[in-house]
Amino acid sequence: MVRESKQHPRSPVQSDSYIYTAENENPEPPEYITAVPEHDVDGFHGKVLAFEQVFAKIIYWALVFFGLALAALMFTQVLLRYVFLSPFVGIEEIGLLFGVWFYFLGMAYVTRNGEHIHGGILTLVVKNPHTVRKVRFVLTLLSIIAASIFAFYAIRYAIFEIEKGRVSSYMRWPKWWWSSSLIIGFGGMVFYFILQITNQFLDLKSTAPQGEEKS
C-alpha cells in the first residue's frame, strides 16, 4: 500500500532535503487521524479493517490497471491514426471509461489515506490539541453527511441511465459502466470517512484531558 505519511500532508512530494522554517517554529499539531489505524484493533472494528485491507488492495491494483490501460489506449490511438492511418473511433469513449474509474477510485483511495487537498489555518490559530481534535471530528461528521447525500444522487443517476437504456454513442456500451464509477467513488468515500470518524472518536476518548472527562 502507498502510505508515505500518516501526517496531514506537510512535506513536499518526493524530496527529503527541504527547508521549511514555519514548520519548525510551530509545535506539531495533533496527528491527523485517517481511516486506517496503525495499531492492531480487534472485535468488529478489527473485522471491518480486515475487510478494508482486501478492499484497498483491489482498489490499488484497479488503479494500476486503469492508469496503464488509459495510457496504452491513447497511445494506440496515436499509432492507429497516424501510423496505420485508420483511427478506431471508439477509443475516446473507452479511454474515458478507464479515465472515470481512475478518477473516482482515486477519490476513494485519497479519502482512505486522508490526502484530500486541505485549506489550513486552524492549527495555526488553535493551539489546544483537544480542540483541534474536536473540530476535526465535527468536520468529518459534516463530510459524511454531505458525501452520503452525493452518494445517494450518484446511485440515482446510475439507475436512471440503466432504466433509460442509455448507451455510449459509438461503442453502444451501457453508459452505467461509466457512471457506476461515481457510486464506488462516493460509496468508498463515505465508507472511509466512517472508518475515520470511528478512529477519531476513539482518539478523542483516549486523549481527553482529565478535567473534561468528568463533565
Binding site: 502507498v2 490499488y60 488503479l63 494500476v64 486503469f66 492508469g67 496503464l68 481512475f102 478518477y103 473516482f104 477510485l105 482515486g106 477519490m107 476513494a108 483511495y109 485519497v110 489515506n113 490526502e115 484530500h116 487537498i117
Partner: peptide, 20 residues
C-alpha cells in the same frame, strides 16, 4: 513502477475531487 502509478492516481484523484 506500480507505486508511482498509484501515487499519480492519488494526485489525480485529489485534484479531480476538488474540480468535481
Amino acid at each position: 513502477f506500480t507505486t508511482s502509478i498509484v501515487r499519480a492516481a492519488i494526485t489525480t484523484g485529489s485534484i479531480m475531487t476538488v474540480l468535481f
